[in-house]
Nucleic acid binder design. Structure first.
Length: 182
DNA sequence: GTTCCGATGCTT
DNA sequence: AGCATCGGAACG
């Protein structure tokens, strides 16, 4: 299990480091293959851009805590608070490959809304520290630097200059990465 | 194959 | 009003 201090680094560094790690919820688990870093209030794509609100408050608190919210009224999104000294920061987990307790089908964890459904994550897990048997992240597979692709984040075109920043991290060519097939 | 659109509810 | 999405319908 990764200790809470592991998340107390720059948000983009944590986003990259989460690739290949196992996200475990109860008896279900997936290997993280896609993440996005959302920086502090200056990041116009981040929920933190409006400052601290009722929804995003945990982003401003201690690292290693889950931030779960409902998107488009339909999908639960699972984030992990991660930052060093910035005012706020979180990593959106966008895709996992089945590891345990899931159908052996890359599609079930492909996309941020799909993975939360597959792993049974919802706002019930919001604000939980990731240091309990029930919900945690563990080191699993080492991912080589040349197997990591950085690109622009998905669905943030409104964010002006921040939309193009390479803050999305994927394992190159992995079948569970969201989006179109290459 | 691509593009378009409705569902659905919470946030500012 | 708009959104850190998804799946199905419509179209070529």
């Amino acid at each position: 299990m990764l200790p809470l201090a592991w998340y107390a680094r720059e948000t983009d560094v944590v986003a990259r480091a989460l690739l290949g790690c196992a996200l475990v919820h109860g008896d279900r688990a997936g290997i993280i293959v896609e993440t996005e870093a959302y920086l502090g209030p200056e990041d116009l794509a981040s929920h933190a851009r409006f400052g601290r609100t009722a929804r995003n408050a945990v982003m401003f608190d201690a690292p290693g805590v889950s931030y779960v919210y409902l998107c488009y009224g339909v999908h639960e999104m699972f984030n992990i608070v991660a930052r060093r000294k910035a005012e706020a920061g979180a990593v959106l987990v966008r895709a996992v490959a089945p590891l345990a307790g899931l159908p052996d089908d890359a599609r079930v964890g492909r996309g941020p809304g799909k993975l939360t459904r597959a792993l049974g994550l919802s706002r019930a897990q919001h604000g939980r520290t990731l240091d309990r048997d029930e919900l945690f992240v563990a080191a699993h597979t080492r991912v080589r630097a040349r197997d990591v692709v950085c690109s622009a984040r998905v669905g943030v075109d409104y964010a002006g200059p921040w939309a193009a920043r390479p803050l999305r991290f994927t394992i190159a060519g992995h079948p569970a990465v969201s989006g179109k097939r290459p």
